[in-house]
């Protein structure tokens, strides 16, 4: 197989990953190799197993079989919190922001979560040295003038921006975005693609997307899942040209 040096260059290796829910095999013997700094999309119809795959990589769900290596290190048995410290960050399909906190506090909770210490009760957040990191994060995702707004008062698009900003706290090594474009207007989608293009070069990105156009614009390489299995892999151009994959998507888009 591959040399050890090669494995180091791979941000994420997934080997024989399988997850069963009773008789249902949601993810079936999936193998992935994602290079450091690569931007990868996982495509597939509803129920293809994409989110289950994410849940296993992020640690929210233990796999039935298989291994997950982060930069060559086996993280299969680590808790979600430990994986965050190793640089794995994820977002969810549904917007999950902290509605009762300001945008700045949302970002700050993310900064603290990634670096710790998380249980400080002696000094207020305003007096903490890492409080300023929230400014840079807000700028990255275009929320600079919304820092003092309650997260529950943000528009849906802004909430998605905020989620991305939270996931970028203390730069992750591996960023997992679960349908970042869900529910966004076409203008918001464009600025999302731009934001994704401006991510740091060494950040490895995997995104789940229903929208072929977004996925194909934002990534270097595409993995297509179908019924829990990896159906095909290739560059966006190859995937666009693949008739079998187009057929799977035709039904959904019906353009």
């Amino acid at each position: 197989m591959q040399a050890v040096a090669d494995k180091q260059a791979e941000a994420l290796v997934v080997e024989g990953l399988t997850r069963r829910f009773g008789a249902l095999v949601a993810v079936d013997d999936v193998n992935l190799r994602v290079a450091t700094g690569e931007k990868r999309a996982v495509l597939g119809a509803n129920g293809a197993g994409k989110t289950t795959l994410f849940n296993m990589i992020a640690g929210d769900l233990p796999p039935s079989e298989g291994r997950i290596l982060l930069a060559g290190e086996d993280i299969t048995a680590l808790s979600p919190q430990k994986r965050v410290l190793k640089g794995v960050r994820r977002t969810y399909q549904k917007s999950l922001v902290f509605g009762g906190l300001s945008v700045r506090d949302n970002l700050y909770v993310a900064v603290r979560g990634a670096t710790g210490p998380r249980l400080t009760i002696w000094k207020r957040a305003e007096a903490q040295p890492d409080r300023a990191e929230t400014d840079a994060l807000a700028e990255r995702v275009g929320l600079t003038d919304r820092l003092d707004v309650m997260a529950s008062d943000l528009s849906h698009g802004e909430q998605r921006q905020l989620e991305l900003g939270m996931a970028l706290a203390h730069p992750p090594k591996l960023l997992l975005l679960d349908e970042p474009a869900a529910g966004l207007s076409s203008r918001e989608r464009e600025s999302l693609v731009e934001m994704l293009a401006n991510l740091p070069r060494d950040l490895t990105l995997i995104l789940i997307e229903h929208d072929l156009d977004i996925a194909l614009k934002a990534v270097d390489y595409v993995s297509v899942m179908h019924n829990g299995r990896l159906l095909a892999e290739g560059t966006p151009a190859e995937i666009s040209a693949n008739q079998e994959i187009q057929d799977i998507y035709m039904g959904r888009h019906g353009k």
């Binding site: 919190q81 009762g100 603290r112 979560g113 210490p117 998380r118 009760i121 939270m166």
Partner: peptide, 30 residues
């Protein structure tokens, strides 16, 4: 005071979205 510290903010965050707090690296039960 406590609710404005990193600990207190994390508590309010888990009041709103416990799953997200875990995904940010916190030990929610603790």
């Amino acid at each position: 005071h406590v609710v404005r510290t990193p600990f207190g903010l994390a508590l309010q965050a888990l009041r709103d979205e416990p799953d997200r707090v875990r995904a940010l690296g916190y030990n929610v039960p603790l």
